[in-house]
Design a protein around this nucleic acid. Structure first.
Length: 742
RNA sequence: GGAAGGUUAGCUCAGCUGGGAGAGCAUUCGCUUGACGUGUGAAAGGUCGCAGGUUCGAGCCCUGUACCUUCCACCA
């Protein structure tokens, strides 16, 4: 143990740890004392409260009679742990309990041990619970320990470190704790002391690492006095120097700190930093020192032995935010990087690490080590269970990465999740992320392919098409929205926005629309240059927005797309630019998409053979719409399944017998007379009319309400009015089509 | 015993400042369209746990309630 421990002390780190320990010791925060601690009989070490997990277990409640000295009567107590009676040194009752008032000050006989122990009165006893009389075992129960202190009771340790009964247990010595329990119950029964046994559900403390039932024991250990240290960490929340995201974890953090007990920091394990305390072999003097002292300051002898114990790993970890930066030296790193900004961690680490980093930070540097703690949930298995070794349901991230890629895993972990919420792991989700990476890769490949041997130049703004301005405007808006989300740590929402932008708008619409100009670059090189320029710039921006969530693929693509730009990781985050915002073009493209989707839907519903291509007649009173649409009709051809657009003039005859698709800017007519089922068309249009009626009713309900008009935000009212006008126009068109059919 | 979270489509989950219920997967019917079938188009699928309340308007705010999960806790 000694050898291993000294190896673990790097010459550089040891003095620093010593410093922290020494400082706290000098200030009286660290002390060595004989107190009750949690003991793991398997690991044979003491534990802090945070390392003990409480498990509900079904046990028994044994009612036992303790004969009262000088009478024929007996005092009945109830216990869940009869074996501890070997260490009983008193019985406690409540001072106000009329039943036992006369017994206080008298003594009872401890059965099996045949020892006289006193009856004491203590507020701690709950009169309502059990029999109202409690056996007191100061050496093996935290409450009893305190009662023992108050009444100056003897402490009898009855356990060895492996939880077998020691020599104080008389005939039970050597037995395991549970074996002894069984034997004692048997002996009590034979001796006539056992009154009754009841089933009882109670919480049992277990070691969080090995799940062995923890044994409270009195031992001499090192402790950190917590009450004073906790104060600045509590104030940090009130003063706003520290906050949790989501906010509800403030409460978790505060509750723990406000009810904190002294922290047992010595461990009887070999891994960890060795406690910098030395004991004089001659006089027993304790010396806490960063370096081994040459001689005992008390008796002058030169034989000193270092404490064999190590520090709780979390004691060392608590120093991480500043010790890694060179503290206690005033290093450049420390000045520059301390305090840090955001700590990202799981809620299961709040007590172990976050709390301890915060109070250590305040104590040693006067500052909180970070201003924000972003809490994430736990990844569970597909059945919602915590991953564990014993269940064998753990996921090896390296295997997932081998299979789907690191970016896919990373994207999965941030998608569809809100801070602090747990997440179930499904391969299917990683697969979806992998598919997205693939989509992005292929889209980039297409763009790069077309950029080969092409020298691009920035197009004149007047050469940009409405579709170009639309995608530029959208990328701009997405950057703004994402930034807002990320500032609020809404990463799941932010990533959803860039994901949808890339896949739905950029790939499915813009690239498809741009293809026509690219494929006809020989006839119109200017238009091709324009399309390719916008493709490249938009892709670059999209990669920047996606980079935090998929750093590897985006970096790789960017290095080929913009080899002179340097690392994408170092590129500036896209900032919203007002001049790029084009609401008119966004509106136009919304109408185009609505029209195209309508045409495709009708073709699908009517089972139009894929090869069937006709013109589509557009009737619109919106001159701007037609002015923008006509020049891009060739670009839209594949998206419209081959339908070329033609404007329908006032010639009403032409529209007869055609299928009509009503959209925001007008009506589209498909001449598919032989396929038209008149009745089905009437049904379809009637359904559409019902939908619009519903919308109009809702809209009218709001707009006719004066309180809505006066109370709702102006933008909301304006938006609603615009919607109403649009619905009214569409309604008129639908009704016209229906009238024509009937 | 105390506290927190959850309950939304078949499944897993988003849903921002209260303002027309969303995604992925699964399902149904199409598509060799010159980046991608790890793709593409269309569709179907929801009394937002339940009961009240506030509001012009509630998945979202308030009260109560049921069930599930988790954390904290020294009733022996």
């Amino acid at each position: 143990m000694t050898g291993s421990a000294s190896v673990s002390h790097s010459t550089k780190a040891a003095p620093r740890r010593g410093c922290v320990f020494l400082n706290l010791y000098k200030k009286g925060y660290i002390y060595r004392g004989k107190r009750i601690i949690n003991w793991c009989p398997k690991c044979k070490t003491s534990l802090s409260d945070a390392e003990v997990e409480h498990e509900e277990q079904t046990g028994h409640f044994w009612h036992i009679r303790y004969p009262i000295v000088g009478t024929d009567d007996a005092l009945e107590i109830a216990t869940t742990r009869p074996e501890t009676m070997l260490g009983d040194t008193a019985i406690a009752v409540h001072p106000d309990d009329e039943r036992y008032k006369d017994l206080v000050g008298k003594t009872v006989i401890l059965p099996l041990v045949n020892k006289e122990i006193p009856v004491v009165a203590d507020e701690y006893v709950d009169m309502e619970f059990g029999t109202g009389a409690v056996k007191i075992t100061p050496a093996h129960d935290p409450n009893d320990f305190e009662v023992g202190q108050r009444h100056n009771l003897e402490m009898v340790n009855i356990l060895n470190d492996d939880a077998t009964i020691n020599e104080n247990g008389g005939k039970y010595a050597g037995m395991d704790r549970y074996e002894a329990r069984e034997q004692i119950v048997k002996d009590l029964e034979e001796g006539g002391y056992l009154v009754k046994v009841k089933e009882h559900i109670h919480a049992v403390g277990t070691h969080d690492r090995c799940h062995t039932t923890v044994e409270p024991m009195v031992k001499e250990q090192w402790f950190v006095r917590m009450d004073e240290l906790a104060k600045p960490a509590i104030a940090a929340i009130e003063k706003g120097e520290l906050r949790f995201v989501p906010e509800r974890f403030n409460k978790t953090y505060l509750h723990w700190l406000e009810n904190i007990h002294d922290w047992c920091i010595s461990r009887q394990i070999w891994w960890g930093h060795r406690i910098p305390a030395y004991y004089c072999d001659e006089c027993g003097e304790v010396v806490v020192s960063a370096q081994k002292p040459d001689k005992c300051p008390k008796c002058g002898c030169t034989h000193l032995t270092q404490d064999e114990d190590t520090l709780d790993t979390w004691f060392s970890s608590a120093l991480w935010p500043f010790s890694t930066l060179g503290w206690p030296e005033e290093t450049e790193d420390l000045k520059k990087f301390y305090p840090t900004s955001v700590l990202v961690t799981g809620y299961d680490i709040i007590f172990f690490w976050v709390v301890r980093m915060v109070f250590s930070g305040y104590e040693h540097t006067g500052k909180s080590p970070f201003h924000t703690v972003l809490i994430h949930g736990l990844v569970r298995d597909s059945l919602g269970r915590k991953m564990s070794k014993s269940l064998g349901n753990g996921i090896d991230p390296l295997e997932v990465i081998d299979q789907y890629g690191a970016d896919a895993l990373r994207l999965t972990l941030v998608t569809g999740n809100a801070p602090g919420n747990d997440m179930r792991y499904y391969n299917e989700r990683v697969e979806a992320s992998r598919n997205f990476a693939n989509k992005m890769w292929n889209a980039s490949r297409f763009i790069l392919m077309n950029l080969d041997d092409v020298t691009l130049h920035e197009p004149d703004p007047s050469d940009l098409t409405p579709a170009d301005r639309w995608i530029i405007s959208r990328a701009n808006t997405v950057a703004k929205d994402m930034t807002e989300n990320m500032d609020k740590y809404e990463l799941g929402i932010a990533v959803q926005k860039v994901h949808d932008f890339i896949w739905d708008e950029f790939c499915d619409w813009y690239i498809e629309i741009a293809k026509y100009r690219i494929y006809n670059k020989d006839t119109d090189p200017k238009a091709a240059n324009c399309a390719l320029w916008v493709l490249r710039e938009t892709l670059k921006n999209a990669l920047k927005l996606m980079h935090p969530f998929m750093p590897f693929v985006t970096e790789e693509i960017y290095s080929v797309l913009a080899p002179d730009d340097g690392f994408l990781m170092k590129a500036a985050w896209p900032v919203y630019q007002e001049e790029k915002n084009c609401p008119a073009d966004e509106k136009f493209m919304t109408q185009v998409m609505e029209m195209v989707r309508g045409i495709r839907a009708v073709r699908n519903n009517m089972d139009v053979p894929p090869a069937r291509k006709t013109r589509v007649y557009i009737q619109t009173g919106d001159e701007d719409f037609w002015t923008d649409l006509e020049p891009m009709s060739s670009s839209l051809l594949p998206l419209m399944r081959g339908h070329d657009v033609v404007r329908l003039t006032e010639d009403k005859e032409a529209a007869e017998g055609m299928v009509s698709i009503v959209f925001g800017a007008g009506t589209a007519f498909l001449p598919l007379d032989e396929l038209v089922d008149k009745q089905a068309e009437i049904e379809r249009l009637t359904k559409e009319r019902e939908r619009l009626e519903k919308e109009l009713k809702r809209s009218a309900g709001m707009l006719n309400n004066e309180r809505f008009l006066s109370k709702a935000p102006e933008a909301k009212v304006r938006e609603e009015k615009e919607k109403q006008i649009r619905y009214q126009e569409m309604m008129a068109q639908v009704e016209k089509q229906l009238a024509d059919l009937m």
